[in-house]
Computed example of a mutant assay.
Amino acid sequence: MEYKIHPKEISQEKVIENYKFLKLLSNQFPSIETASTEIINLEAILNLPKGTEHFLSDIHGEYETFKHILSNASGVIRRRIDEIFSDRLENHQRQELATLIYYPKSKLSLVKKEEEDIVKWYNNNLVFLIEIARNLASKYTRSKTRKTIPPQFQYIIEELLNVNENLMNKEAYFEAILNTIIELGRADKFIITLSTLIQNLAIDRLHIVGDIFDRGPSADKVMDELLKHESVDIQWGNHDVVWMGAAAGSLAYIAIVLRISSRYNNLDTLEDGYGINLVPLMHFASEVYEKDNCAEFSPKAGKENLSKGQLKTLRQIHKAISIIQFKLEGQIINRNPDFNMSSRTILDQIDYQNGEIIIEGKSYKLLDSNFPTI
């Protein structure tokens, strides 16, 4: 790096002008040595390969799909496996190795049922995994890699990543570590930990671009997974804002979340994921719409897994919360005439006697005109 001004040429006036800033810096770098070390470190980092940036959007609560994409880093891991082992492993072997990294628990369960020489399999795959992890870690500083390593086996993994097993004095050391891991019955845990490390090293930073929540069945699990990630930033989407509003206590947003969840047969996220009791809503809907089949309020997804009674109850919930949402939205619009949204007061646009709704001056026949709560 070329400096425009040599440190010795900085004037006293410049020092005084930037005194507050320099004072703050001196807390972190109290000596020339510490400041020089940081400059050297930052200059060196600039010459490392740029880490992979991973962008994901519109997750919509689809945890299984999200987890798969995250596990394989959108193909980054498989490409790295091909680069490293293309001349040593057949295609199907590379695919097996990739699957082990993506789904270590499931793959280990299958392997232990099918593999005759499990010790040899452990040895081979531990070596492969360490080589992949070492390759991915090469674009980071040791400090950053250390922070990425899961706490389990941290010291051992750091040793394996930084030892050259091809050196005469280190070969026995490397093999002894792997053999001891297997002998102590810790190979499964070690493989799972290495696989997690590889997944984390494959992506330097994860960017979520909107809509974690909405119609999918497990947005809560997606959030839990993101909390575990080492480096992530989120740009919230409109659906996320709705859920935030509901969490903050907005009645209209609560109704919207409930309506969308019932529309996509996704009430389990609220009940199981967040422990919200929906029994009162179910009782209310079943009582008010007891004789109403609510056919126009069938869920958009998952109804094939419901019994006839469950489907009817879900339809009733969907209809009940839809009417509640329209009422709450109408109240907000009426309280805020400056919104200029009077055309969106849905219930005010209905001709209940003739079962019609007027939209932009045109009259449309309603498919459902049973409104006992209006």
Rank of each mutant, 00 (worst) to 15 (best):
residue 306 L to C: 05
residue 368 D to R: 13
residue 12 Q to W: 00
residue 215 R to C: 11
residue 189 K to I: 08
residue 241 V to K: 01
residue 83 E to R: 13
residue 260 I to N: 01
residue 123 N to Y: 07
residue 340 N to G: 12
residue 201 L to N: 11
residue 110 L to S: 15
residue 369 S to W: 07
residue 226 L to N: 14
residue 202 A to S: 15
residue 369 S to A: 11
residue 283 H to L: 13
residue 73 A to L: 09
residue 337 P to C: 07
residue 30 P to M: 07
residue 271 E to C: 08
residue 220 D to R: 04
residue 238 N to E: 11
residue 277 N to V: 03
residue 229 H to L: 09
residue 165 E to S: 14
residue 161 L to V: 06
residue 158 E to D: 03
residue 356 E to N: 06
residue 362 K to R: 06
residue 4 K to F: 10
residue 115 E to G: 11
residue 181 I to H: 01
residue 282 M to Y: 00
residue 149 I to P: 13
residue 318 H to Y: 01
residue 82 D to Y: 02
residue 163 V to H: 03
residue 141 T to L: 05
residue 35 A to S: 14
residue 23 K to L: 13
residue 312 K to G: 12
residue 167 L to T: 06
residue 203 I to G: 09
residue 317 I to Q: 03
residue 114 E to R: 15
residue 347 L to R: 07
residue 11 S to A: 10
residue 32 I to G: 00
residue 137 A to K: 05
residue 244 M to T: 04
residue 289 Y to V: 00
residue 294 C to Y: 00
residue 70 L to P: 02
residue 80 R to G: 05
residue 315 R to S: 02
residue 126 L to E: 03
residue 227 L to I: 09
residue 248 A to F: 13
residue 21 F to Y: 10
residue 260 I to H: 07
residue 374 I to F: 14
residue 121 W to C: 08
residue 45 I to E: 01
residue 167 L to R: 12
residue 213 F to W: 10
residue 70 L to H: 12
residue 160 L to Q: 00
residue 245 G to H: 10
residue 135 N to D: 07
residue 92 H to I: 10
residue 89 L to E: 07
residue 250 S to G: 06
residue 57 S to N: 11
residue 5 I to L: 10
residue 158 E to C: 03
residue 215 R to K: 15
residue 265 N to I: 02
residue 46 L to R: 04
residue 124 N to W: 00
residue 282 M to Q: 10
residue 2 E to G: 15
residue 102 Y to N: 11
residue 123 N to E: 08
residue 281 L to N: 12
residue 189 K to E: 11
residue 140 Y to M: 13
residue 6 H to A: 10
residue 229 H to I: 01
residue 185 G to R: 00
residue 150 P to V: 03
residue 317 I to C: 13
residue 358 I to M: 09
residue 95 Q to M: 08
residue 97 L to P: 00
residue 169 N to D: 01
residue 149 I to W: 02
residue 307 S to L: 04
residue 114 E to K: 15
residue 234 I to T: 10
residue 118 I to C: 07
residue 107 K to V: 14
residue 298 S to D: 06
residue 91 N to T: 14
residue 48 L to A: 07
residue 179 N to Y: 04
residue 156 I to F: 06
residue 115 E to Y: 08
residue 35 A to P: 02
residue 219 A to V: 02
residue 262 S to T: 10
residue 312 K to P: 10
residue 189 K to N: 14
residue 294 C to E: 05
residue 19 Y to L: 09
residue 5 I to C: 07
residue 264 Y to I: 01
residue 150 P to W: 02
residue 105 K to I: 12
residue 90 E to N: 11
residue 165 E to R: 09
residue 172 A to F: 02
residue 330 G to V: 10
residue 95 Q to P: 02
residue 92 H to P: 05
residue 79 R to A: 06
residue 82 D to N: 15
residue 338 D to S: 14
